[in-house]
Design a protein around this nucleic acid. Structure first.
Length: 222
DNA sequence: TCCCAGGTCTATG
DNA sequence: CATAGACATGGG
């Protein structure tokens, strides 16, 4: 048991306040963990989870807006589109050739669920859904207590000495889940806070000086 | 001009 | 198992 995991959460929440992830219906909803409120919003989160793979969220927003513009932020509608139309809509999000295929398959998978919550294993069987996308979908679209590990999170915990650089996804996921109560709102907020913190201290130029600056979390990671 | 962004897949050893 | 290369647009 590593109390640092909880101490870090408290320090981040204190520093940044509630983040209000995941953006739904085009906007953030700080401190409101009630989303999604229907199937359509759930699919919007799922589409965003696929589109944001290795891509800045501002680019994802453009793609989502394009889809919304042709009323295609909807799995049934996506299934009626040609691959080329889908590609041109999501173009701003990059990797559009493969993401169009991923979205098409995800739409088919989602419709086939008929409202049922998929298992992690089922999600991972869909092309384009790896560990992080599966957990993001389960945590934010289905409100299941699955901790999301992204590149930012890994940078932070390895930098703080809480994990080895070679640590795999499941190892890091377990580090958080074994030290926290399985609470959906907590998992959502914690992940969002880690991203916010990493954007300030561990991304872009800040990353280069990561050996120089002092992360205020360092003393908490015992 | 070059690096980066809320990863995943495929091929190779 | 683990690691490299491919995938693509937009902002700093």
């Amino acid at each position: 048991m590593d109390k640092g995991i909880i101490a870090i959460y408290e320090a981040l929440l204190d520093a940044y306040g509630p983040q209000g992830w995941w953006p739904v219906a085009g906007s953030y909803h700080q401190g409101d963990y009630g989303y999604p409120r229907n199937e359509k919003e759930a699919f919007e989160i799922i589409a965003g989870a696929v589109l944001t793979q290795n891509t800045a969220w501002t680019s994802v927003e453009r793609a989502l807006e394009n889809l919304r513009g042709i009323d295609a932020l909807d799995p049934h509608k996506i299934l009626t589109l040609s691959l080329d139309v889908l590609k041109s809509a999501i173009r701003p999000a990059g990797f559009f050739n493969q993401k169009a295929i991923y979205l098409m398959e995800m739409a088919d998978f989602f419709v086939g669920l008929k409202g049922r919550t998929p298992s992690r294993k089922e999600l991972m069987s869909v092309k384009g859904v790896g560990n992080e996308t599966a957990d993001s979908i389960l945590l934010y679209a289905y409100k299941r207590p699955e901790f999301v590990i992204d590149a930012y999170t890994k940078r932070i915990v390895t930098s703080l000495g809480l994990a080895e650089r070679k640590a795999g996804y499941m190892e890091l996921k377990n580090l958080f889940e074994s030290n926290l109560p399985g609470d959906v709102a907590l998992y959502q907020e914690y992940h969002a806070l880690l991203v916010e913190h990493a954007k300030r201290f561990y991304s872009g130029k800040a990353r280069e000086s990561s050996g120089v600056f002092v992360d205020f979390l360092r003393d908490l990671s015992y």
